[in-house]
């Protein structure tokens, strides 16, 4: 692997006595697609949310290309810095977090208009372009409350993409969806994978992780237990804990 695109160095996080991340280091290359799996409470979401500093680390560094994300700065400067960096890091949440008072168009154009100073016409074109990508152009003037869960999540992806991020973070993007709506969101993510978007995906869906990702990281108890290409990690894991987790999980799914 050439120079890492996203570089997590010795990340650790404590809540009081409780250590939720223990000295985790991880490098992700440009265009690479990484799945993070593990039981709930394993720290996988915390790690993901540390990448854009939504949950700040207790110690350690996160780098995106040549920029340290969690740079130590005075509050005012830090605020400016992080808002800048976050424009390059798209994030998709389990519960969508669409803005209910804005239409689909409004959700997508809000940040580009405010932060990139583009015109209304440009912003509209951008919204249409991104909605086409997720196959929801005809819903552009709907409100989030008028959409299904799967459609909401596709809009949320389009909203993140409209900022032209360098990397996309997915925090259990399909966990809150009814089973029949999962596939449409997976399709959109697959398509992004084919376009070589750099993606870090926290997920419970082993099948999806296996078919889409270049690498799978298994976390448990705040440690990275094991990582490797999906065919190795899923077919032939080397750690007992990984085997246990996969066995339970695959049982639960069938």
């Amino acid at each position: 692997m050439s120079k890492p695109f996203v570089d997590i160095r010795h990340a650790a996080k404590k809540f009081g006595e409780l250590e939720v991340l223990h000295d985790i280091s991880m490098q992700i290359g440009k265009g690479e697609i990484v799945a993070i799996i593990g039981p709930s409470g394993s720290g996988k979401s915390t790690l993901l949310r540390a990448i854009n500093d939504l949950d700040p680390l207790s110690s350690g560094e996160v780098w995106l290309e040549d920029m340290q994300v969690n740079k130590a700065l005075p509050p005012r400067q830090y605020e400016k810095h992080i808002n800048q960096v976050r424009q390059d890091i798209g994030m998709v949440f389990q519960h969508f977090n669409l803005f209910p008072h804005l239409t689909v168009r409004g959700n997508i154009t809000l940040a580009p208009k405010m932060l990139k100073g583009i015109s209304d016409a440009e912003a509209n074109a951008l919204a249409e372009e991104q909605l086409k990508r997720v196959g929801l152009l005809e819903r552009i003037d709907y409100y989030p409350s008028q959409l299904s869960g799967g459609q909401k999540q596709r809009v949320a992806i389009a909203r993140a993409l409209a900022m032209k991020p360098k990397v996309m973070l997915f925090d259990e993007a399909t966990s809150a969806l009814d089973p029949e709506l999962v596939e449409e969101v997976n399709q959109v993510m697959k398509q992004l994978a084919e376009e070589h978007m750099t993606m870090i995906i926290v997920t419970h869906e082993m099948g999806f992780a296996e078919s889409v990702c270049d690498r799978v990281v298994f976390m448990d108890g705040g440690y990275v237990v094991e990582e490797g290409p999906p065919e190795v990690l899923f077919r032939n894991p080397s750690h007992e804990r990984t085997r246990n987790f996969l066995r339970k999980h695959l049982q639960g799914q069938s």
């Binding site: 854009n52 605020e79 808002n83 890091i89 969508f96 977090n97 940040a111 909203r159």
Partner: peptide
């Protein structure tokens, strides 16, 4: 709180988040 997170991950500042979201 998801609304704050949604806005902040897009890069909106605290004031912008307050005003627009």
């Amino acid at each position: 709180t998801g609304q704050y997170e949604g806005a902040r991950t897009l890069g909106l500042s605290k004031l912008q988040t307050l005003r627009k979201v």
